[in-house]
């Protein structure tokens, strides 16, 4: 599996650290415990196309939103998380 980092180009999977679903970009307000529970634990976990967060740890150190098909390991698109979060 290779990930095409928008800054560094096509790189080996070993350079990246996987965090989890891109739900992590939508942090709920403090105090809403049910929303925080959902944010931390509940996952849609689809058996198809999903978006998740990867850190280019051994590269440019960018956080990336990677669109992948988790049933085939095909990578469909990569964006900088800083762009997605705008």
């Amino acid at each position: 599996m290779r990930i095409n980092c928008p800054i560094c180009g096509d790189r080996d999977r070993r350079e990246f650290y996987y965090l989890g679903a891109s739900d992590y970009l939508n942090r709920p307000a403090e105090g809403d415990l049910d929303a925080i529970h959902k944010y931390l634990h509940i996952r849609e976990n689809p058996a198809g196309v999903t978006k998740d967060l990867w850190h280019h740890e051994a590269g440019c150190s960018s956080w990336l939103v990677v669109e992948r098909n988790v049933s085939t390991h095909e990578i469909l698109g990569v964006e900088l998380a800083s762009e997605v979060a705008k």
Partner: peptide
């Protein structure tokens, strides 16, 4: 392998 997957096969690393 440490990434979400349903592929029933892993990667080489």
């Amino acid at each position: 392998d440490f990434y979400a997957s349903y592929a029933q096969r892993g990667n080489l690393p």
